[in-house]
Lab assay of single mutants.
Amino acid sequence: MDSLVVLVLCLSCLLLLSLWRQSSGRGKLPPGPTPLPVIGNILQIGIKDISKSLTNLSKVYGPVFTLYFGLKPIVVLHGYEAVKEALIDLGEEFSGRGIFPLAERANRGFGIVFSNGKKWKEIRRFSLMTLRNFGMGKRSIEDRVQEEARCLVEELRKTKASPCDPTFILGCAPCNVICSIIFHKRFDYKDQQFLNLMEKLNENIKILSSPWIQICNNFSPIIDYFPGTHNKLLKNVAFMKSYILEKVKEHQESMDMNNPQDFIDCFLMKMEKEKHNQPSEFTIESLENTAVDLFGAGTETTSTTLRYALLLLLKHPEVTAKVQEEIERVIGRNRSPCMQDRSHMPYTDAVVHEVQRYIDLLPTSLPHAVTCDIKFRNYLIPKGTTILISLTSVLHDNKEFPNPEMFDPHHFLDEGGNFKKSKYFMPFSAGKRICVGEALAGMELFLFLTSILQNFNLKSLVDPKNLDTTPVVNGFASVPPFYQLCFIPV
């Protein structure tokens, strides 16, 4: 009986604490739906499609509103004006990374994606500088992407125009580009180590996009005490870190300090320079996690976009025909596509942009946080508050993009057929937390897609009208449904 009384008292205290925290903070924060004790607004949000729920709530509470995930307040920004004001106009104040408990377990605050403060700034600055020195957006990395595009075309030829699921092959190409940047090595598509790495990356994007992960991140005790797919994700990350550590040891034994070959060499050189400046942010643990982040951000996002792009091109054969006509006119058949071609191919450029806009790969991006107490639109948001960005509300804005739910390359073309930029184009987020590999991803999408369409016609196994382009999961990332196609050599 005594234990029951204690339990009831504990629960009562928890409920009172929950109510007090919510009521004391709500006077400062933007308005929002009334949260339930302990669980907050979790029942009012469709976990399978958070973005749709945010759109519905914005119609009631406006472009800036507050939700509670458990006891934790989260300020939501919906629509271009609110997102721009926060991420661009007040970029420094909104540059923090929001709480992501599962990532905390995986990387302990290291790396480039989930770190904060001085650690994040130094690692991000170093990573950007190193990638630029190796030619991100310049010639040397373009050579690597072109080489991988040629290998991709050869792998597709091996399908002999038979029906195939493109998931694996389209994942190999961007993964190999990242391998060449980090390890100075590309792998054969049949290499077992490479296959294991690909498998872990593919599993992780599916797990991260599941409703279960949303629950884990908002009720963090689940991570330590409950079984579930989150444990598989943590094991996959541990596998990748151990693999990278092996490569780091190989580099330490063979590195030429006067001739760095890749990202690992550059990081080890930085560690050597910083060894007298303790404590340094440049450690082996930081290198492991930064490399894992580059793999995660640079492989599955690009391969998922490529997979979605081919599905949309199957669905819209008239678009595919126009792209192939432009390829034939500008590039021809006797040389590989290059980035200089893009400025002469406005329709193809528009298609690449429209694919990214339409699929809305990361509907709410990753959570941000404010780095200080900030007054925002007459609300006071306390330091450390998590900020949720609705990228969907920007990419699918119906004023900027008429009929935003329709796939239409003319969203990025003017009346004369010239490519038209849009400030609403934010597939990689915006501001200080914009994806480090934005330029690389854009290069890969253009070169891989043009190389495929230069060499193959795409054949659907069903009537294009019957192809479903609805994402199968739409949590962290929008993942396309399973499909097969035939690559018919031109």
Rank of each mutant, 00 (worst) to 15 (best):
K432V: 11
L485R: 00
S390R: 11
I182Y: 02
F267T: 04
S478D: 02
T371M: 06
I327M: 05
G32A: 02
D463Y: 06
V490I: 09
N277F: 12
V352P: 02
L11S: 06
P63L: 02
G171E: 15
K59R: 11
A321F: 09
K121I: 12
L310T: 04
H251N: 06
S390A: 08
Q484M: 05
T385R: 02
G442L: 05
Q278K: 15
L208D: 06
T386M: 10
G475V: 06
V436R: 02
K270V: 06
P166H: 00
K322N: 12
S51D: 09
G416M: 08
S242A: 13
L131V: 11
F295N: 01
I327F: 00
S115Q: 12
T167I: 03
A238G: 13
P30T: 01
P73A: 03
C13Y: 03
T371C: 11
C151V: 06
Y308I: 03
C266D: 07
A161P: 02
R144D: 06
E326R: 00
V473G: 14
L395P: 12
P363Y: 04
P33Q: 00
I112K: 14
Y243I: 15
L195Q: 15
P37V: 03
C435T: 05
L287K: 01
G70Y: 05
G111K: 06
S18G: 14
L395H: 10
M271V: 10
P480Q: 02
S162V: 13
K432M: 14
I205T: 11
L362C: 08
E81L: 07
D165A: 02
I178A: 06
H396C: 06
L57D: 00
L54P: 01
D265S: 14
C172Y: 03
K247D: 02
K315C: 06
H78E: 05
P404N: 06
L201F: 07
K185R: 09
A321W: 10
P464V: 13
K119M: 14
K432E: 09
L458R: 01
V76N: 00
R357Y: 01
I182C: 07
I389Y: 09
Y308Q: 05
E203V: 06
K185W: 06
L9S: 06
E326P: 00
C10H: 02
L43Q: 08
S422M: 05
E122T: 13
L170H: 02
V145W: 01
I182D: 00
L197P: 00
D2W: 15
P166D: 00
G135L: 12
Q192V: 12
R157L: 14
N196A: 14
N289D: 13
N403E: 13
V8C: 08
L294T: 01
Q356E: 04
W20A: 04
G111L: 03
E104T: 12
Q22F: 11
A297G: 07
D349S: 11
C338G: 11
Q146N: 09
P227A: 08
I284R: 07
I74D: 01
V292C: 07
F65L: 04
D397Q: 04
M129T: 15
S422G: 05
R21G: 11
G475P: 06
I205R: 14
V145S: 02
T299S: 13
F401P: 04
S58K: 11
L43T: 11
P260C: 11
F476L: 13
L197G: 00
A309E: 01
G79R: 00
E199P: 02
E300M: 15
A103P: 15
T392R: 12
R132N: 11
A149N: 01
I42V: 15
P211Q: 08
R144V: 13
Q356R: 05
P174R: 03
S220V: 09
V355C: 14
V394A: 08
V351R: 02
R150S: 09
E92V: 09
I215T: 03
K399L: 15
S23A: 10
S343G: 13
D408L: 04
Q22W: 14
W212R: 02
G171M: 11
D89K: 04
T364E: 02
G384K: 05
I452N: 00
N231G: 08
Y358A: 04
Y61W: 08
T66G: 01
N231W: 08
A309V: 03
L4P: 02
V292M: 14
P30A: 02
F376R: 01
E155K: 01
K52D: 06
R357M: 01
I374W: 10
K275E: 10
V292R: 12
K158V: 05
C372L: 06
L128E: 10
L170V: 07
D2T: 09
F100L: 14
P409H: 00
G98W: 12
R186S: 02
L11R: 00
L268C: 06
I205W: 08
N217P: 12
S242G: 13
K399N: 14
E415V: 11
Y483H: 02
Y68L: 02
L449P: 00
A350N: 00
Y347V: 03
I374F: 07
I359D: 01
K247N: 07
G27V: 14
P363V: 06
S24A: 07
G98F: 10
K249S: 09
G437F: 14
F94T: 07
H344A: 06
E274D: 09
V323I: 15
E199A: 13
E199Q: 09
Y243P: 01
G171H: 14
A441T: 09
I169K: 02
L366G: 04
K459M: 05
A86V: 06
I99T: 14
F114D: 12
N176P: 01
S303E: 04
C13W: 06
N217Q: 12
Y308V: 02
T159S: 10
M255A: 13
K52W: 07
G475T: 10
E154K: 08
V145D: 00
Q356P: 01
I47R: 13
N218W: 09
R21Q: 12
K423S: 13
R144A: 13
G70Q: 02
S115A: 14
L314I: 10
D188Y: 08
E444D: 03
L362V: 12
S162T: 14
S53G: 09
I50F: 13
Y483G: 01
N56T: 14
E444F: 02
I222P: 06
L11G: 09
N56F: 09
D224G: 07
F412G: 00
M240S: 03
V330E: 12
K459P: 01
T385G: 02
Q340N: 10
